[in-house]
Design a protein around this nucleic acid. Structure first.
Lengths: 350, 350
DNA sequence: GCGTGTTTTGACAAGGTTGTCAATATTGGA
DNA sequence: TCCAATATTGACAACCTTGTCAAAACACGC
């Protein structure tokens, strides 16, 4: 007979009795507090192991101040970007004994501070998380940062943010990545390069564009305003941009899209317009999302280590929670990678 | 000055004092228990409102038996299917005052019962959820169901399961949906129809195939074993199936894929082989995932109301939690929808 | 008016942990 | 050897709610 039913689970008292010490000593050992002899420490550990002891979260957070809960705040689930980050964050939480809960807060960007506060309290007051992982576009929102700070909730941000923002940050070097892309294109011989921006409230949109601009200038090329199009990071906006380019008298020979979804839209529009990618126009994306290998041709792009970003974010957060020194600022930059696939080629000989 | 900082939050005692009643009466009112005069009830409600009182989850779950936590268990995040369901589930949880946490358990299917138990305990023992939303392919796994039952954790399953499985279930009519697809194809005049299966551990694979088979028979057509291919629900397996079909002496005139990702792979393979969809071959998917409108041509498919499935799952679970009658079985079938897009057409005249 | 039965209310314990502070054991120096 | 200082340990309160059970209030029938 398989033993499955969990009997009355062991409490700290039981561990204490078995180890022949007081409850408080057990607490000390299990929380790695100082002032316990090594001998007792071992004894307690053994007893806990033997009894298969697991501390009660509710009791802990009732008495102590921790909830062992981390909240991932984003404005919309469903995007490849959010999901991949979430994946890494969940794994890291499981490893660290934390629990990840998802908070979906919509359209927070346009709200006033009291409204933002109400939204957060609505979701978080019942069980206040020990920390929040803030994703784009909220990562860069000052009002949201302010509200969370006033609520006393530590935050780690994922993605590029304005330089004045303090605190924990995990990102890649969007700026350098954009330079890498432009360098690749100029090395192929492209001079007339178009750009499709992401949604304007996200900092990455600005950063990627300035990397693009600087690299263009460094290559002795001008950024033609007619070849810079707005976008929303959605497929459809890329498609629209693609159709715009099609109507130009002189098309760009290459287009750098601020993300993969839009790049796929651009490629779709170009193909529908009778052009071949990369024979007529090269296209580069950003993210290395699923779609990059599901579209044809395969998309040349920048790989963001999304799930690593999520995992590092959680680890940073938990580490800072354990440090005496609060509001420590820390910035982690993970490596991106240029992924050469099939949507780029030298410009067509005229 | 905006008041943002949450001061020492009100406790039940404060509400009791303000309302001039005992703590227990407040508890009764707030939990909608009987045996309180309407007059007092009103008074307590007003006091709670005035003090902006929010009960402490930790205290509640320490003393009571609820954790106000629901766990979504799946074997992999990142798929469109899981994410869309999760989206609906998160929203429903927020509405109901619950919190959704994600449990990622990998490869549980191949494990023994003690291993499964260990995996669940590893994730859930610290804070036992009030219930679990079980997604495919775990929804149909008997061992997992057994373990959760023994742990005393209520379960709601999403997606088709074996008929002998009791309990809460939210699904669409996969069987009927498959019949709808075949009917559409036969109405167009197709006779030689291929099928690509999903991964074998998922019940939906069997159900969709049997719907396909029955509808074929009903239309007086034979299911040609050479036109039935295995798959994994992944894009790549659809691509492989597409390449297989290409090599046949006589291609099917239409292919029914068990999901959209594979359908996209099939279309990609056919197009690479120089065939046009739907001119040479019609393709139908299942799910109406993102990719259905990002590929070209747009994919004809069956829409599953995924986020509704997630939302209903949570609501069912919470409802059953509040009922005295435990292990009540309940089955909810949501409506699917046939979505006609551009990958189906009458078979080519020979 | 009194006893009986029912409804409403409250006092108090319990749940499992951590923080405080006092008690005890240990060390070092005179 | 003894005292002071320090390191280790434990007793007990506190955290905030819910469950139990007894007390109080009320209704009803005689």
């Amino acid at each position: 007979m398989v033993k499955v039913k969990s009997e009355n689970t062991a409490k700290m008292k039981d561990v204490a009795d078995l180890a022949g010490v007081s409850i408080k000593t057990v607490s000390r050992v299990l929380n790695n507090e100082p002032h316990v002899q090594d001998k007792l420490r071992r004894k307690v550990r053994e007893a806990a192991e033997k009894l298969d002891y697991v501390p009660s979260q509710s009791a802990r957070s009732l008495r102590g101040s921790r909830s062992y809960d981390i909240s991932l705040v984003c404005h919309m689930a469903g995007s490849n970007y959010v999901n991949a980050i979430q994946f890494g964050a969940v794994i890291a939480c499981q490893d660290l004994g934390y629990q990840l809960s998802i908070s979906l807060l919509e359209n927070l960007g346009s709200k006033s501070i009291p409204e933002i506060q109400a939204a957060f309290e609505g979701v978080m007051r019942r069980r206040k998380p020990d920390g929040v992982v803030l994703l784009a576009p909220y990562a860069n929102d000052e009002k949201i940062g302010f509200v969370l700070q006033e609520m006393g909730i530590p935050v780690v941000r994922v993605g590029p943010v304005d330089t004045q923002t303090k605190g924990l940050l995990v990102e890649i070097d969007d700026y350098q990545a954009s330079i890498d892309v432009v360098r690749h294109l100029t090395n192929l011989g492209h001079k007339r390069i178009g750009f499709v921006r992401g949604s304007e409230e996200q900092r990455s949109t600005q950063v990627r564009f300035s990397g693009f601009s600087v690299a263009m200038e460094a290559a002795g090329l001008k950024v033609d305003p007619d070849l810079v199009r707005p976008g929303t990071f959605q497929f459809e906006s890329g498609y629209d941009a693609g159709r715009y380019f099609l109507k130009l008298d002189e098309l760009p020979t290459a287009i750098f899209s601020s993300n993969d979804d839009m790049a796929a839209g651009i490629v779709a529009a170009l193909q529908e317009g009778g052009l071949s990618v990369p024979q007529h126009v090269s296209v580069v994306g950003f993210d290395d999302a699923d779609i990059a290998t599901r579209m044809r041709p395969f998309l040349t792009t920048i790989r963001q280590p999304l799930s690593d970003l999520g995992a590092h974010a959680v680890r940073e957060l938990v580490t800072s929670l354990n440090e005496a020194d609060k509001n420590g600022a820390h910035r982690i930059v993970l490596k991106h990678e240029f992924v050469l696939r099939d949507t780029t080629a030298p410009p067509r000989k005229l």
